[in-house]
Design a protein around this nucleic acid. Structure first.
Lengths: 265, 265
DNA sequence: GATTATTTGTTCGTATGTATT
DNA sequence: CAATACATACGAACAAATAAT
């Protein structure tokens, strides 16, 4: 039996650039292309693992690695005792999970101290209703204007206007001491549950009055971040407009793309 | 030969309800709990596969299945030749889902048309490596400079610089016709799977050269959005730097806060 | 710079368990 | 009950990436 030429597997053909592809990724690519081309229709069964093993002349493990890839893209669905059926022809838009979104916000709040400049009751006018789309002109809200500082830093990192409902206005007395985000305070003290946060970010220039407050240059760039917090009934519970000079703050988010079928404990 | 003592593995202890847990899921749960408890700190290495194999008295395959689970949650990062390090302490901060994160991005891409200004090969210099932190100076990448337009609009909404690896540079020939995001093109044509996107937003002023391209005023405010797309091994697959004049673009995100129990079948 | 040891990644083989028909 | 097909689990070997010598 003569030596084995060792490695001369059909799937191990060299590819254009980069490093050589693995066998399972090649199998995965071929199967994906066939599904996309319509050789296996949606709802139809693809060959069994044993058949694929023969067809590609690889081990069952390799076949399973390839199928795992397609599963994680939601292309196929495997069931023991039945087989593997095509679920979609093209990888569906996967689902994203933000990491460091709200959590980062909380950390930001905990890492900074706040100084309240003033509080007041206000009637929403047209201009504010345009910026905070979930408010309506004529409504009554309470507003707190605050500055945020990093510990031991004399220059503020942000100026914020915070808006809460009149019945929750007592939380504004605690925002500088609690070390908690305002929405957390409202949830704790009033039993409200925030269910959604919508956030808008625009680039603006620092105006004269804010330049003075923030010790920033007039017409320097800044991020204006508007957040509106709503409960399960889609009622606006709280809103905030923050102005962050760009030399002190950048907004970072990390999205993790999650596989459709990721088991959990 | 001879019988086998069958099954009497420590990890196979019966659990409260439901069906019996698998060994790998038990290992995964234990490791997750330890990370969460702080036994392994973020940035620290967890034991090698061989050590875990001994500790739990299971095969390497079982250990790897467990680690695969943690990887898919972004809890750990494994690198050949180095080891496996803890990347985050908590998967349970799962209470937030970004809705309209990537989806919105895709819609944005599908709703706009692109014009490629030029393409070139480049060697990463220090300046670029500082903005795209996952690149290293000296690496070779391919860059495409493009403008984005809304349909039937003469003024562009954004200017973008897109970076792809040399072995994927063919996708740059399709970005203006495909109507798909570049990262989708790479995934389809090269079998890569993007697993994470990190995004940084800063406010900047429009410089002269870009002002001309974008037909915007010099020193008007704009959002500079930097996105870096990485695969499961944390390798940078693609990057993009976009400049969006603020009178034409704002960045909107919506977060939904998930109830602790959202169980389904 | 080359070599070696370590660690994860890929691939093979085999056996048994579990769900479905 | 038996056959089928995927799921889990054991073992072994080599490749690739990296760090240390």
């Amino acid at each position: 039996m003569s030596s084995k030429p060792v490695n001369s597997h059909p799937l191990d053909a060299a590819q254009t650039g980069g490093r050589p592809a693995t066998r399972y990724s090649t199998v995965a690519r071929l199967l994906t292309e066939e599904i996309e081309a319509g050789r296996y229709q949606v709802g139809e069964k693809i060959p069994t693992e044993a058949e694929l093993q023969q067809r590609f002349d690889v081990s069952r493990h390799t076949v399973r690695e390839a199928l795992r890839d397609l599963k994680s893209q939601g292309l196929i669905l495997a069931r023991a005792g039945v087989g593997t059926v095509v679920r979609a022809r093209a990888p569906r838009t996967r689902f994203m999970q933000g990491i460091g979104g709200l959590q980062e916000l909380i950390q930001f709040v905990e890492a900074t101290r706040m100084r309240v400049l003033h509080k007041r009751r206000l009637i929403v006018d047209q201009a504010l209703a345009e910026r905070l789309t979930l408010m309506k002109a004529g409504q009554q809200w309470h507003e707190a204007s605050v500055l945020r500082f990093l510990p031991n830093e004399p220059t503020p990192v942000a100026s914020m206007n915070i808006y809460v409902r009149p019945e929750h206005s007592d939380v504004l007395d605690f925002i500088d001491t609690a070390g908690l985000p305002v929405f957390s305070l409202i949830e704790r003290r009033h039993g409200v549950r925030i269910s959604e946060v919508s956030q808008q970010i625009v680039a603006v220039l620092v105006e004269r009055e804010y330049a003075h407050l923030l010790k920033a240059r007039v017409d320097s760039p800044a991020l204006e971040i508007t957040r509106q917090y709503t409960d399960a009934q889609d009622r606006l519970v709280m809103a905030a407009i923050g102005l962050h000079p760009s030399d002190r703050f950048s907004h970072n988010t990390k999205f993790r793309i999650q596989s459709p079928e990721d088991k959990e404990s």
